[in-house]
Computed example of a mutant assay.
Amino acid sequence: MMEITIGTTEDGQWIREQLIAYNRQHVPTSVYTETETYCFLAWDEEEELLGGVTASYMWNHLQVHFLWVDPENRTGGVGKQLMEKIESIAEEKSCSKILLDTFNFQAPGFYEKLGFEEYGRLADHPAEGQTQYFFVKYL
């Protein structure tokens, strides 16, 4: 008989390390790197936060996690400049691609204008009538 219990943060880290060790056996050394995380913020002259982006680097690609732009500044190029910064990091790291996901109520058209291509979608997520899109930009 098996029992399932709640694990600690340390247990979660141990599980992560076990999967990383397993993955190292199957992923070519040339693309296996340690993860690096990034966070960039955009500020105006009055030191007001306009937006920010977070991402991580691993396995020869950059994964964008969150891009947020203040609603009053969504047409001023803030998002584009933040994504250009992400792309410059990806190029600096010699990444082959940038990956991200977005929802229909967020910005799929914005990412398409930046050269991202849809490679998948999940309908009725997070709720009925909504769609999650998965994008890639090959570098």
Results as ranks from 00 to 15, higher is better:
Glu46Lys: 14
Gly12Met: 08
Gly77Glu: 00
Trp68Ile: 07
Trp68Met: 11
Ile89Ser: 03
Gln81Glu: 12
Gln18Ile: 11
Gln18Trp: 01
Glu117Trp: 01
Tyr57Glu: 07
Gln25Tyr: 08
Gly109Ile: 01
Glu17Tyr: 03
Arg74Glu: 06
Glu36Gly: 12
Ala42Phe: 00
Leu49Phe: 06
Thr75Tyr: 04
Trp14Ala: 15
Thr9Asn: 11
Ala90Pro: 06
Asp101Thr: 02
Met2Tyr: 05
Leu67Lys: 03
Glu10Asn: 14
Arg121Lys: 14
Gly52Lys: 04
Leu99Lys: 09
Glu34Ser: 13
Asn73Thr: 06
Val69Leu: 10
Gly129Thr: 03
Tyr57Arg: 06
Gly76Cys: 01
Ala55Tyr: 00
Glu118Phe: 04
Cys95Asp: 10
Tyr38Cys: 05
Val31Ser: 13
Ile89Thr: 06
Asp44Cys: 01
Leu62Thr: 09
Met2Pro: 14
Thr37Lys: 09
Ala21Arg: 08
Val78His: 05
Pro126Ser: 15
Leu139Thr: 02
Cys95Pro: 10
Leu67Asn: 01
Leu122Ser: 12
Leu100Tyr: 03
Val53Cys: 12
Ile6Thr: 15
Gly52Phe: 14
Trp68Tyr: 11
Glu46Phe: 05
Gly76Phe: 00
Gln63Asn: 13
Leu114Asn: 02
Leu67Trp: 02
Leu41Glu: 13
Leu82His: 04
His26Lys: 14
Glu91Ser: 12
Tyr57Cys: 02
Ala107Phe: 05
Gln81Lys: 11
Leu62Met: 09
Phe116Trp: 00
Glu34Gln: 14
Tyr138Thr: 12
Cys95Ser: 14
Leu41Lys: 10
Glu34Asp: 15
Asn73Gly: 00
Gln18Ser: 10
Thr9Leu: 12
Glu10Met: 06
Thr131Phe: 03
Phe110Val: 04
Ile6Phe: 10
Glu45Pro: 04
Asp11Val: 10
Gly79Cys: 00
Ile98Val: 15
Tyr138Lys: 07
